[in-house]
Design a protein around this nucleic acid. Structure first.
Lengths: 205, 205
DNA sequence: CAGTGTGAAGCGCTTCACAGCT
DNA sequence: AGCTGTGAAGCGCTTCACACTG
């Protein structure tokens, strides 16, 4: 469900990368060629990507680093904090809670859920683990906008259904299954094993 | 560096998914339509993907589930165990060590490395944390074929260089940077924050 | 002149559609 | 009849090339 105009799917992650490049750039100006170099893409690609959001550059000069950064962050919706809940208090869920890349970039973990009664009630890195049945009530109270699924494969679809029913519209799924969600829900999958499997293909022996 | 014929980049992950579908399929036969349904793709896509590796199906019948599974696993190089080392003994590295999807699918963690002297020597989930300087010597001894980078952004390129110099040809990178490696090295990136950022774009407010 | 913005060409993946096999 | 394998069409992203701007 695109916001205003339909952005090509591959563009979005690239824009995120450009923001990173801008953040670690020292000078005040930067050219599309320099962004491309740092991001590992074509310079024309950079300009075309940016053109989806408007015109930011000055011919002969390039882009104002600070200005472009702010503009892109606003376009991506990264100009505000986002509350995130994690479902699954296993090793992966636990690691995500402490992941510095989240808190440091505007994503605040506001709740951990698990179906295992043995885990519920305990604290994980300072966060109380809540029972999954309470997810529907808690969701509004926590004003969580992003849900992370870090449960075993077998439980993933059920958790996704619960999240969707509770009104969650954006889900990041770490379970190795193709989840079924309504078109109105944004879903991204991160399949760790799949990445290793793809790499294995390129090994010689 | 493709093995025999150049496979379209998007095909590889899909093949991995098909294998998953086959593994959890009960009957002896399956049609491309059924695989497609479960994998969330087009049926013609499935047939075209499979045709890169050969002809497996029987017109009017479909595919033999067991046979196709074995064939695909061999084509992907998943018919043997792969030794994996993880660089970075932080929260993420720690979670990856215990990730059931690895050990359960032929990827065996054989070593953890970290540059922090405070971590070296300790055991992480039963594995000794080795100093990163020993990586070159240890690599051959451990016969590791896959390297996982789970260190902070600032250290990632240096770790990648070390891995490449030591002869590693496949790298899975969790640091949020675009790493520079020779073309002969297979590299895949998993940027957790980037996924959340992409999702944030689709949020209404 | 250096560098952006963009129409147009290029290219590769996806989907269609159907011949052919069982 | 049912379903695979595949040439060909369709489609969308990427790259080129250049007019234009400061």
């Amino acid at each position: 469900m695109p916001k205003r105009k339909p952005i090509p799917d591959p563009t979005l992650p690239r824009i995120c990368m450009y923001v990173r490049v801008l953040e670690s750039h020292q000078e005040a100006n930067i050219s599309s060629a320099a962004i491309a170099e740092a991001a590992g893409v074509n310079a024309a690609q950079v300009r075309k990507d940016l053109s989806f959001f408007g015109q930011f550059g000055q011919p002969g000069v390039g882009y104002d680093v600070g200005e472009l950064q702010v503009a892109l962050k606003r376009m991506l919706g990264l100009d505000r904090e986002r509350n995130v809940i994690i479902v699954g208090a296993g090793a992966l869920g636990s690691a995500l809670i402490g992941y510095p890349g989240f808190e440091g970039r505007g994503f605040r973990i506001v709740g951990i859920f698990d179906s295992n009664p043995a885990k519920v009630g305990h604290r994980l890195r300072g966060y109380p683990v809540l029972p999954i049945d309470e997810l529907p009530e808690q969701l509004a109270a926590l004003s969580a906008q992003l849900g992370v699924i870090a449960v075993p494969q077998a439980a993933a679809q059920s958790v996704a259904d619960t999240l969707v029913e509770a009104g969650m519209t954006a889900i990041l799924n770490f379970a190795p299954v193709s989840l079924r969600v309504p078109d109105s829900v944004a879903l991204r999958n991160v399949d760790l094993t799949q990445h290793l499997e793809c790499l294995a293909y390129y090994l010689e022996d």
